[in-house]
Simulated scan of single mutants.
Amino acid sequence: MTEKICLVTGVGPGTGKAIVERFADGGYTVAMLARDSDRLASIAKDAKGTHGYVCDVSNEETLTATITRVQEELGPVSCLIHNAVGGAFGSFLEVEPEVLEQNFRINTLALYHMARQLAPAMIAAGEGVIIGTGNTSAYRGKDKFAAFAPTKAAQRILLESMARTLGPDGVHCGYVAIDAVIDVPWTRETFADQPDDFFAKPEDIAGEVYHVAHQPRSTWTFDTVIRPFGENW
């Protein structure tokens, strides 16, 4: 692939924005997917080579149409970063099944649909990258994560299956789990008594995602777990 096109979902004010900026700095043209048009316009104004697409990734029809538009306007996508996340907190007795289903659509089915649409061009090119961002809910089910952890675990296992399918064709799939409180305004308010190094910086997370996307073929990583040095694990 001569053009470097990166598609990033879930472009919010924290990790998503930082990922967009890091890949733009790396010479990529970046397609940003989010539901907030004002946020996308603001980022596109400040970050060269970025293009915003309003999209609800839980809606298959909308998502498919958006991916088609991205490819028509920018070219074949060489790197997909699925950062969009649907979450809810409560036990299985407290959270309605519809919430679990919606989270599954965002976290897992959206990845499934996008990969099916984008992978054929990557296979034909003999290269490409598909990365999912997650957290430790992909590895364990705590009592208040009943409508969230199952969808993140499914997301990770889907991506692992994709890695085994696509790896021999030169397409690198990886999962970057963030075991941390991410440094954004609302978490700063919630954890106001914590020092700076308690938080994971969005730009540092983005740097690791970029690193995984550019690993040499002789040393690909699938599972990457990152956390602040003082995190209890």
Rank of each mutant, 00 (worst) to 15 (best):
M1L: 10
E3M: 12
G12R: 05
G14V: 05
T15S: 15
T15A: 15
K17H: 13
R22K: 15
F23I: 01
D25W: 04
V30A: 07
A31W: 00
M32E: 02
L33K: 02
D36C: 02
S37R: 11
R39E: 12
A41L: 06
S42L: 11
A47G: 03
K48I: 02
G52L: 09
C55V: 09
V57R: 00
S58G: 14
E60A: 10
E61L: 11
T68A: 13
R69W: 03
R69P: 03
E72W: 00
E73M: 08
G75R: 01
G75N: 00
C79S: 08
N83K: 07
G87Q: 10
F92P: 06
L93W: 12
P97F: 01
P97S: 08
P97Y: 01
V99H: 07
L100Q: 03
F104M: 12
N107A: 04
L111N: 07
M114E: 05
A115L: 10
R116A: 13
L118V: 06
E127S: 14
V129G: 02
I131E: 00
T136V: 13
S137P: 08
A138R: 04
K144M: 14
A147K: 03
P150A: 08
A153L: 03
A154P: 11
A154S: 12
Q155A: 14
L159A: 09
R164K: 15
L166F: 08
L166A: 03
G167D: 01
V171Q: 07
Y175K: 02
V176A: 02
I178W: 02
D179H: 11
V181L: 05
P185S: 00
T190K: 15
T190Y: 14
F191E: 03
A192P: 04
D193A: 14
D193G: 09
F199N: 08
A200L: 14
K201I: 09
A213Y: 06
P216W: 05
T219S: 15
W220N: 09
V225P: 04
E231K: 15
